[in-house]
């Protein structure tokens, strides 16, 4: 089993005789810890901190989290607060409250999330976005270089984040999707926008939505006026696999595709939806073909997003150094 070894030079202190486990083994253990524990365990000792703050460790931790499916639901409240919540016994339970410390971004929208990084947009600002890791509370303001059109502000209809392993950073994507049944995607290997062959089940009278479900590309939808929906996922080999049919939708919703947004799939295989108008959260049990309304003690959330429990934050080392040397009032990095 090949393991990533940390460079010895980075961990000079780990040679001490008090350690009972080798650095390799310690790496394998602590990589399985959640972010909150890791942040706390930085003060166990200097060698522990050296491992935890290492960039390679953070990347491996992110991959491990993905593999373990360690996802959290991030909710944005109307009050401007964010919180990590979980659905337990069809009740919404707050695990951790979050705040965005950047001025003007307290009441922001969650545009998209990828691997534990969330892209936020303030309702008033059009050029500035905030990249945020709510697990570690790191954030960075970004200026979008493509929206400098004077005449009209064109907002992207969709937005995405993707990881580019070549430059070892996340790219912000703003694809414009038209209303025909064409799926376009951005190939990060060739840096080109390409068209994905339309799957056979997407008929002309049907509407489908996208989502990343359990690391797979997922399409869900059906006939425009339908009260039912089908969920399909794309398998590793690129073939579409039918996952389930969702029926018996709650009476407050009229049409499935218009009114319901798929959020994620729980460990027990329940599918969590959000109703668009009321922001209420529902859980669908596939075996019983039953929707359950998730009880929420507080006012309805504005928006819900899924977020990986990850230490990783895409701040290139070079930029971080530059920032330290000349602290500017608005430390914005445009890419």
């Amino acid at each position: 089993m090949p393991k990533k070894k940390l460079e010895k030079s980075r961990l000079p202190a780990y040679k001490d005789d008090t350690s009972i486990l080798s650095c390799d083994i310690l790496f394998c253990i602590i990589i399985r810890l959640p972010v909150k524990s890791l942040l706390r365990f930085q003060c166990v000792s200097k060698p522990w901190r050296a491992i935890i703050s290492d960039r390679e460790f953070k990347k491996s931790h992110r991959d491990q989290s993905k593999e373990m499916g360690r996802e959290k639901m991030l909710l944005g409240r109307k009050s401007g607060e964010f919180e990590f919540s979980k659905v337990e016994n069809s009740e919404l339970i707050t695990m951790e409250e979050q705040r965005i410390p950047l001025k003007g971004f307290q009441r922001t929208q969650i545009l998209c999330s990828c691997d534990g990084l969330v892209l936020l947009k303030s309702p008033r600002a059009f050029k500035i976005f905030v990249l945020w890791n709510p697990s570690t509370r790191e954030y960075r303001a970004l200026r979008c270089p493509y929206l400098n059109v004077k005449e009209e502000i064109v907002l992207p209809t969709a937005c995405g984040l993707c990881y580019d392993s070549r430059v070892d950073d996340y790219k912000r994507l703003f694809p414009y999707v038209d209303r025909t049944s064409t799926i376009i995607y951005f190939d990060i290997k060739s840096d080109e926008v390409k068209e994905l062959p339309t799957p056979g089940f997407v008929g002309e009278d049907k509407i489908f939505q996208f989502l990343l479900l359990r690391r797979c590309l997922c399409l869900y939808g059906g006939k425009i006026m339908s009260k039912e929906s089908d969920i399909w996922i794309m398998e590793q080999d690129g073939r579409w696999k039918w996952l389930m049919n969702v029926c018996n939708m709650p009476s407050i919703c009229g049409r499935f595709v218009r009114d319901m947004k798929l959020l994620y799939c729980t460990e027990n295989g329940e599918v969590v939806f959000q109703e668009n108008d009321t922001s209420q959260i529902f859980m669908y049990n596939h075996k019983r073909q039953q929707f359950v309304r998730v009880y929420d003690k507080k006012v309805s959330p504005l928006i819900a997003s899924i977020c990986l429990d990850s230490l990783y934050f895409s701040t290139p080392n070079v930029k971080r150094k530059r920032k330290q040397r000349s602290p500017t009032p608005n430390n914005m990095n445009s890419r």
Partner: peptide, 18 residues
């Protein structure tokens, strides 16, 4: 995962070097 740093030190027999 739910332990304090002090407890982790004792469990791993680590002397705090901070």
């Amino acid at each position: 995962k739910d332990k304090s740093p002090e407890a982790v030190r004792k469990i791993f027999h680590i002397n705090c070097d901070y």
